[in-house]
Structures are given as structure tokens and as C-alpha cells.
Amino acid sequence: MQIIVKNIAKDYGKRFNAVHAIKDIGLEVKQGEFLGIMGPSGAGKSTLLNIISTNERPDHGQVLIDGIDMTQLHDKDQAKYRRNKMGFIYQNFELLDSLNVKENIILPMALRHASKRLIEQSFKHMTRLLNIEELSKRNVDDLSLGQKQIVAAARALINGPEILFADEPTGSLDSKSATILLNYMQLINDKEKTTILMATHDAFTASYCSRVVFVKDGIIFSEVVNPGDRNKFFEQIINMQRTIGGGSYFNVSKNS
């Protein structure tokens, strides 16, 4: 899946107190790329992901996925596209609290009318992989934040999506679970050529990407490409964060 974002812009609110969430962003994501999006809070990362994933329509610009202009599609076709090709880990998880963990995870498969056998099989596989087998009958409401996040990740990955959108996928996870999840994401990125777009504040998380773009005040500020060495990449990301400000704990004071 190749994604081309052309000059999109998005405002929220009415004329006088409008927020320019995204001013002008152009971006190209190659098939099988693992793209990181970083930037301070309120920079527009989530908004950018929402627009690319067709959850929101931009005010201007185009989003081309494999040459199809997503912004021109009808709601219905967009939903179909989301259902069939995309996986989502939302910043606030977006789990359905009337369903239990298992039902939440299998929902995307059920929506695609997959066979029962396949559903059960994938579910087993997914939960074993992410180490959440014992959660399966639990109520979503009762889970801890981290557990919710990993469940949300399981739901996003169970379908084997062609594009994965991950908004702060490790924000609430302990380092072990985070590593498991990130490794898995890297694995599917390698093996299945899944295109991944991930927003994060965390330099360590970002160091798994093949490229990181930095967003600030609704525009792309700069980008860093993974040189092949994760430690070096990590350094580069930290440095860039310092120049931009925000995002990392030791330069919060500078920003405030």
C-alpha cells in the first residue's frame, strides 16, 4: 500500500476560535514502510492519522492510497475500506465496553464475515502472541489502561491489515509488553509488508520505525531516516526532539 498525502489542511471549530490542527502537510509513504510521526502534544499527529485513515475528511488536499483518492469516496466505501484493509490502535483505545475482551478482539473479523474456525484460530494465535490469553472472558471496563491498550492492539492486528494506524500504541504499556508489541509490529512489517503509521512521543518506540517525521503546529517540520542502526537512530530522534521541543520529559520546561 502506497500512501500519498497532498497538501492537506484541517481546521476545527468556528471562525473566531478556529484551531488549525493541520495547516499544510504533504507526505509520501511507501509500500511496507514503518513510519513514525512525532511532535509535541497538540501538534496534529492524531488528526493526521485520522485523516489518512479516512476517519475524518480534510478541508483541503487529497489522500491517495494506491492511487485512489480516499477523500472523494463515499462514507460507505470509506467504512468498507477501513474494515477490509486497515487496522487501528487508537490513542483512547475505542474499545466497546458492552463487549468482553474476546468479542472486542474478534469484532473486525466478524465484520468481515470470516469463518468461525478462522476466527477462533486467529484469536488464539493473537492472544498467545501478546500474552493476554487469560483476559479473554474479562469485561473491558475492568481492565487496566495497559491491558486495554494491548487488547486494542490485538483487535487492530487480528485481521492482518494492510495498513496499520497506531496512535501512541505503547503509551500505557510496561516496557516488556511494549517490546513484545513493537517486535510484532516490526515482524509483520518485515514479513507481510504491512505499511505502518505510528504516532508517538516516545523516542524508544520511534526507534523501531524506518523513518520518523516530525510534526509541529500542523506542518511537517523535518524527518529522520533510520540509518540501519537502532541506537544511532534513537540518538538522532532525541536530538531532533530537542530542537523541536515538547514530547520528551527533559525539555518540557523549555516548551511551557
Partner: peptide
């Protein structure tokens, strides 16, 4: 929560 659920459905690809 009931509102949120309907919205969530839409977000993960259930069409309107």
C-alpha cells in the same frame, strides 16, 4: 458509553 460505542463502531469500519 452507548454513544461512544456507536462512534467506535464507525471508527473501526462499520459504515453508517
Amino acid at each position: 458509553s452507548e454513544w461512544k460505542q456507536l462512534r467506535t463502531l464507525n471508527k473501526i469500519g462499520v459504515d453508517k
